[in-house]
Amino acid sequence: MFNLIRSDFYRMVRLKSFIIILAIIAFMNVASLLASKMMQQDEAYQEYLQKVMEEEKAKKEDDPGAQDVGMSILVKADDDGKYELVEVCKSFLSGYMALLFLGIFTVIFVTADFNNGYIKNYGGQLRFRTRLMCSKSICLVVYTAILFAVTVLSTCVGIWLGGEVIKVTSVGTLFHYLSIQFLLHVVFAIVITAACVIVRNNLVTMALCCCISMNIINILYRLGDKGLKKLGWKNADITRYTVSGRIAQYATDGKMLCSTIIIALAFFAVAMLAGGTWLHKKDLV
């Protein structure tokens, strides 16, 4: 198993997309922060932004079930003019920026073996092909950690380049937030890995990944909610029971934290079981 992980990791770090995606996300983070800085200095834009946000708020009050589609990243300084690191990280992580790129990389990494036929060079020699699912998942845990490090570092660099000051009011809060987000992002990557293994079509899995990380899948969730409401579940909200839904929220209290971990573990178990079983039972073609 350890040898399989080493081999998967060796191939992972040699994928061009390994570096390219990290470079893109670093660039996007820095560019977003610098653009935010420029916009904050523009009073007319600030007024426009304020107006849009109020309109959005009013719309949501009128229709609580309304959902945003697309990616939303909003970086704001505190009243003292300093940027709270955890809040900036929230913008990029809970705003699905990292999720989108993690999903894209997962699809590229997992389907690479199937697409180029490399898996046929060793798949038959493995006694338990389920191990492939485990080794790829472990590699993606490492990649997620690197992605998070790049996100936090590029965020700091972006703020510094904008001539602003970063503050960390509570290291505990930052650690807590990043830990939960890390867990959820890893589980998301494993769910996409299982989808890649089962579907074996990178176009479909890439589309699925984009739909989840760009909130487009919320349209389906809303339809599901309506159906469940008709069945009698008045407060139905499927988003609350999904990994991506939990990424958008910040588990502050113990109960929410507990439910977030349970949801993450449930998705993890189902994805590992489904992907592992599929790999073990299905032919490698």
């Binding site: 191939r11 040699r14 690479a112 073996d113 180029n116 036929g117 490399y118 898996i119 046929k120 060079n121 038959g124």
Partner: peptide, 9 residues
């Protein structure tokens, strides 16, 4: 095995 084409990176 070497089945069909040699899967290479």
């Amino acid at each position: 095995c070497l089945i069909e084409d040699p899967g290479l990176y």
